[in-house]
């Protein structure tokens, strides 16, 4: 991953324990981190959305009875790229194996579930998953994007 190639300009660390009670505070702190480091609006949104979807997934599907469920989120701002590390004690789950297919592929019926992970996979530039010592460890790189997007409305 690009983690070793660029100097770290800022680091963000947040531990959610118990996760369901701290998720809103985490997302607010990430938004604040983005403002402080003058990340463009689109970039802040992508960052928040990726972390939100992955933490939600871990809370909803990862918790095991009798096991202390903790999620740790680290973000390294390396200038042109953000490295997001999410480490949790939940059930083994590799998001990189989730389908890249759109929740509503052209010509097919619309699907209700799975949209969050699909968005994560499509927004992230790289994702790397490992499982060790009863922890899921996910590293995501997110390249900075210019604010070039202009939407095409219904004519």
């Amino acid at each position: 991953m690009q983690k070793e190639k660029h100097p770290i300009t800022a680091r963000f660390e947040f531990t959610l324990s118990p996760p369901e009670e701290n998720q809103a505070a985490l997302l607010a702190a990430i938004e604040q981190f983005g403002h402080v480091h003058a990340l463009p609006e689109a970039y802040r949104y992508r960052l928040g959305l990726i972390v939100d979807e992955l933490v939600t997934n871990s809370i909803v599907h990862g918790a095991c009875k009798g096991i202390d469920h903790t999620i740790k989120v680290d973000i390294l701002n390396q200038g042109k790229v953000l490295i997001i590390e999410i480490i949790d004690t939940g059930r083994p789950f590799d998001p990189t194996t989730h389908s890249l297919s759109q929740p509503c592929p052209e010509g097919a019926p619309i699907v209700l579930g799975g949209a969050g992970l699909c968005l994560v996979r499509r927004l992230a530039n790289q994702m790397h998953y490992t499982r060790s010592k009863d922890h899921n460890h996910l590293v995501i790189s997110l390249n900075k994007v210019p604010e070039e997007n202009t939407y095409t409305w219904l004519k």
């Binding site: 609006e41 689109a42 949104y45 959305l49 759109q102 929740p103 509503c104 592929p105 052209e106 949209a115 699909c118 968005l119 499509r122 927004l123 604010e147 997007n149 202009t150 939407y151």
Partner: peptide, 14 residues
């Protein structure tokens, strides 16, 4: 604009 991207990549814009 920055939110419209997710409608595009999810296919919900169709």
């Amino acid at each position: 604009d920055y939110i419209s991207e997710i409608f595009d990549i999810s296919g919900y814009n169709r």
